[in-house]
Design a protein around this nucleic acid. Structure first.
Lengths: 188, 188
DNA sequence: AACATCATATGATCCAAATCATAAAACTTT
DNA sequence: AAAGTTTTATGATTTGGATCATATGATGTT
C-alpha cells in the first residue's frame, strides 16, 4: 500500500520517546495530531463516570491512532504508553492543509482508512467463530500466522495453550501439517 | 454525523431489491460501486481454494459495504443476499468525481471511515474481554444495548442465555438494575 | 559459560459459557 | 380469537477453552 503520510511536508511529524505511563493526550484536550507507533505500545482508554477504565484500542508497531482527531476538536479518550518505545506525532494542521491541497494525499488517507475498515470487519467475523480449531484455520487463511504461535493466539483471543492444541488437532485431522518447530501450514 | 453521500448527484445511487441468494457482485469482477443496506442483510464472503467460504462481513440496515471498491479495480470478495431486502448502489464513478470536485464530500467520506475505524477498534477490544459479565458491562457502557437482549448478545459473541444470566448476576451484584422486562441499566 | 527469558509443547484439572430443555409473556399474523 | 413467532427467563447438563503445572529447546544477556 502506498503510504499517504509520505506526502506530508517534512516537518509535519515529530518523534516522541515514551516511557511506561507517559500520557500522549487526555480526553477532552484539544486535538493537535494523530500518531504512528514506531516501537512500544500505546493504549487508548476512556474512563467511565465511576472510575473504571475501558480500553478502546492498543496500538502497536506501525499502527496509527487518533486518526479521527483530524475531524474532531477534542480527543475522545486518553492515550497512555503501556510499553516504552517511540511514536511519531503527525500534525493535524499539516494533515488538514495537505488534504485540501493535495488530492493524492487525501485519496491515499481515505483509502488507508477504507482498507482498515475492511480488515477490522473481517477480524470481527473471525472472532465470531466459536470453535478454536475453526478460528485458527480462518486466521491462518487470512494470513495472520506470520510470527509466533503465541502472537497469533493473542490476536484471535485464544490462550497459547489452546492454540497449540488446535494446531495439533488440525494436524491429526489432516487439515494442517507441521513443517517444523512452531511452523504449521494449511493442507489443500 | 453528517451524511456525505447526500452530497452526491441525485442519480448517483440506484435502489436494488434483493432476494435470498441474490449475488450483488462476485470476487474479481470489475468494481462499479459501493452499497448501503436499507433492509435485509448482505454477506461478504471469500471462497478459499478448496471451496469453503470465509465470511468477511455481514452488512445490515444502514450499513455500508464495499467502500474500498472505490480504490480497487476488482471486488475482492462475493456479496450475497442472506436476508431479503433492499440495497442502494452508489456509483463508483460519481463518488470518485465528487471526491475530486467537492472537498466537503471528500472530507465527509474520510471522516465517516475514520469513525468506523474507531468503533471497530473499540468493538474488538470489547470482544477480548474474557468474562461475560464484564463484556456485557462494557457493551452497555458503549451504548450497545439499544434494542433486545438477544441482539446485544449476538453482537458481543454471547448466547442470549448467557447474556440474560450476566444481567441477572450483575443485578444481584448491584452493578445493574432491572428497570422492566428485558430492560436493564447501569447503576453508578 | 552460565544464566535468564521466551517460544514451544503437552498433561491435568477446573470452570464458565454453550447447549439443551422448558415455559410464560408479548407481539404478530391469520 | 386463535395460532404462530419472538423475546424474556431460568434450570440442568455438557464441554471446550482457561488455568495451572511442567519441561525442553532456542534465543539473548552478562
Amino acid at each position: 500500500m502506498l503510504e499517504p503520510f509520505s506526502l506530508l511536508p517534512p516537518n509535519a511529524s515529530r518523534s516522541i520517546d515514551m516511557e511506561d505511563g507517559d500520557i500522549l493526550f487526555r480526553q477532552d484536550q484539544p486535538t493537535s495530531g494523530l500518531y504512528r507507533v514506531v516501537t512500544g505500545c500505546v493504549t487508548l482508554q476512556r474512563s467511565s463516570l465511576n472510575g473504571d477504565k475501558l480500553t478502546l484500542h492498543r496500538a502497536i508497531a506501525d499502527g496509527l491512532f487518533a486518526e479521527a482527531s483530524i475531524f474532531s476538536d477534542k480527543y475522545h479518550c486518553d492515550a497512555v504508553c503501556t510499553v516504552p518505545g517511540r511514536v511519531l506525532k503527525i500534525s493535524k494542521a499539516d494533515v488538514i492543509s495537505t488534504m485540501r491541497t493535495n488530492p493524492g494525499f487525501s485519496e491515499g488517507f481515505t483509502r488507508l482508512l477504507a482498507v482498515q475498515v475492511q480488515r477490522y470487519r473481517a477480524h470481527i467475523e473471525m472472532l465470531a467463530i466459536g470453535s478454536a480449531k475453526e478460528r485458527v484455520i480462518a486466521a491462518v487463511q487470512a494470513g495472520y500466522f506470520d510470527a509466533t504461535v503465541t502472537e497469533l493466539a493473542t490476536r484471535i483471543n485464544l490462550t497459547h495453550e489452546s492454540c497449540y492444541r488446535a494446531f495439533k488437532d488440525l494436524c491429526e485431522d489432516g487439515r494442517m501439517i507441521r513443517t517444523g518447530r512452531g511452523r504449521y501450514q494449511l493442507t489443500t
